[in-house]
Nucleic acid binder design. Structure first.
Length: 626
DNA sequence: TTAGGGTTAG
């Protein structure tokens, strides 16, 4: 081509109308090669894209994740337009480059190019991502000036921006002012209220909204799950299937409801949802498999969890799945499996992150792998370039504390580069209880009382330490303090699924229809059998300064014992009993459950606040180290 | 070319 022809051709509108639809049709990764060929041919002909064609080309490259080429084209265009800027803003936003988007938007603004209904939603998404509410407010002002306040996309994006920046009052004000609302505007506000813990306000909106789609239902379900309201989440999931046949649950719905099963340890419910996901063709989804993995692990079935992991491994090398598997082993006290899974992950070429190390270190801690844990704590920074956070220090304090190395743990706390939080002092206090160190216990407890005055668990823990030392006066003083502070004690409760139905017990609970049978078993049959096997009630776990006989009675009716009794009375031999407790299992229940597993030849899996205990043949998977 | 729901840890 003669050089003098090039400027002429560059002006030729026929070239634009020729190439634009071609580039527009070549979107997606598998068409990238073709797009590159057309681009090369165009360049050979000496044709430089104008703003319109440039926008199409930017979109094409962005759709196949070739952001570098998209950016290069953007910079070559001489007279940029709003359309061109929109295309690069879209490309950056969809690839998670929020900072770059903001920079480009700033440049657009300086050039005097006006943003439009396509610009603002992306820019606002980035403001939300970066929590830049002040820029979001400027965009809000600008959109009002150019008359875009009534655009549904801009309006909903503004609501979402306020929601993500934790400004619910402005989000609500905007919502109330909107003349035309879309189902998405309602959804954004519902999600905001749920995130804020304002369940009733979210429920009100959900009740009032004119039409619901799958996102509305999912926002409610995930909101319940995230606020610990597992029962409501599961109920609403069923309601959705029953009442709204038009909505089709998708993968987000499934991964939102699964944590509710995990939370309530409802294994059968979880299995049903798993089957449901398979029936609607979602089983191959990696996020669903990972959520299933977590659910099975939290419901006590490591075998099912591992199967989900293997399914993910067949197709993907996914960081979240590795992390979930490592964490699953850790919570089940399978430290060496957590370590070997971590090593497999490294061999598979996946870069670990902060969550990987939280799982790995807690796995070492729960299994007493002290030196291995300390080695990985060192490696995380030196070998894997992951900066230890407060949660990792908490794991190491726990690791040292459980092994009785209290002085080293205390030393580590004093050398931490950040302020010690509740997790650190909580781990220290537990260690002090195990090793009867009153002096450090009082230091840890006094920090905890300042850091989280509302947490009754800390008062109870110190009270237990005093009680074990026979310091009843201090126990009483603490009780007075608890009352004066207005702290409500968190009552211990346990639950179990028997033949697919959940049963909840409080300590000393007599409200269950089978209470008579349960109490006869616990007060008569069981003591005879376990005492014959060498059981001595460990009354040091009882708080009150009362007679030994009364202490023993109070132990006998701990909620976990009631739940185990119900399971033994209602299931056939060979059925694994699964019990979940909202607090840590007490030492006496731990001893008794080991004996029950031997005498009644039952596998019993107890999930407590921190971990799993697998009782079998008179032993526990924690090796009495918890 | 545009908005809304998101699995792992704590």
């Amino acid at each position: 081509m003669r050089t003098f022809l090039k400027p002429l051709l560059a002006q030729d509108p026929r070239f634009v109308s020729f190439y634009a639809p071609i580039f527009q049709s070549l979107t997606g990764k598998n068409l990238l090669k073709l797009g590159q060929q057309v681009h090369a041919q165009m360049a050979l002909r000496g044709f430089e894209p104008d703003a319109y064609l440039g926008a199409k080309m930017v979109a094409m490259y962005a759709s196949s994740d070739d952001l570098d080429s998209a950016v290069a084209i953007f910079h070559r265009v001489n007279n940029p337009s709003t359309l061109l800027y929109n295309s690069i803003i879209r490309a950056y936003t969809l690839h998670g480059f929020s900072e770059e988007t903001m920079e480009i938007y700033g440049r657009m603004h300086c050039l005097g190019l006006k943003g439009d209904n396509f610009t603002y939603p992306f820019v606002l998404k980035c403001c939300a991502e970066l929590s830049r509410i002040w820029i979001g407010k400027c965009v809000h002002g600008l959109s009002l000036r150019v008359g875009l306040e009534s655009d549904m996309y801009v309006g909903t994006s503004l609501i979402n921006m306020y929601v993500k920046c934790c400004d619910m009052s402005d989000a609500r004000r905007l919502f109330d002012k909107m003349t035309v609302r879309d189902v998405s505007s309602w959804n954004a506000l519902i999600a905001g209220y749920m995130k804020d813990g304002e369940i009733c306000l979210a429920e009100d909106l959900f009740g009032q909204m004119p039409g619901r789609n799958i996102v509305s239902w999912t926002a409610m379900i995930s909101g319940y799950t995230q606020n610990g309201l597992a029962e409501q989440a599961l109920f609403l999931f069923d309601e959705m299937l029953k009442k709204d046949s038009r909505v089709k649950p998708n993968w987000v719905t499934i991964i939102s409801v699964l944590p509710a099963c995990a939370h309530s340890a409802a294994l059968e419910r979880g299995r049903n949802i798993h089957n449901f996901a398979s029936r609607i063709g979602l089983e191959s989804n990696v996020s669903i498999q990972t959520a299933l993995l977590a659910m099975y692990a939290k419901c006590g079935s490591l075998l099912d969890a591992r199967q989900c992991f293997e399914r993910v491994r067949q197709t993907q090398n996914n960081l979240v799945a590795w992390n979930t598997m490592i964490t699953a082993y850790a919570s089940h006290g399978r430290g060496s499996e957590a370590v070997s899974t971590f090593e497999d992950m490294i061999v598979a070429g996946v870069q670990p992150d902060n969550i990987t190390f939280t799982g790995l270190l807690s796995g070492c801690s729960h299994s007493g792998l002290v030196d291995v844990g300390l080695k990985y704590f060192d490696y995380m920074k030196t070998v894997y370039s992951v900066e230890p956070g407060v949660e990792h220090y908490a794991c190491v304090v726990d690791l040292l504390g459980r092994a009785g190395r209290l002085a080293e743990a205390k030393d580590l706390i004093s050398k931490m580069p950040m302020q010690a939080g509740p997790s650190i002092w909580g781990a220290m206090l537990s260690a002090c209880r195990k090793y009867h160190n009153l002096e450090i216990a009082e230091i840890a407890a006094s920090c905890l009382f300042i850091l989280e005055p509302e947490n009754s668990g800390n008062y109870v823990m110190l009270s237990n330490i005093y009680a074990e030392a026979g310091m009843w006066k201090e126990v009483d003083n603490l009780r007075v303090l608890l009352k004066a502070q207005g702290v409500k004690k968190n009552p211990g409760c346990s639950w179990t699924e028997v033949n697919g139905k959940a049963h909840l017990f409080l300590g000393g609970d007599t409200s269950h229809p089978q209470a008579k049978e349960i109490y006869e078993f616990l007060l008569d049959e069981l003591p005879k059998k376990i005492k014959a096997a060498g059981y001595v009630p460990d009354t040091s776990f009882v708080l009150h300064d009362v007679s030994e006989e009364e202490k023993e009675h109070s132990l006998t009716t701990h909620s976990e014992k009631l739940a185990i009794a119900l399971g033994l009375l209602n299931t056939s031999p060979g059925v694994v009993l699964r019990v979940t407790k909202n607090l840590r299992i007490c030492g006496d229940c731990h001893t008794a459950t080991k004996l029950i597993s031997r005498i009644y030849k039952r596998e019993i899996i107890v999930r407590d606040l921190n971990r799993f205990h697998h009782f079998k043949d008179g032993n526990c998977s924690c090796g009495d180290y918890w």
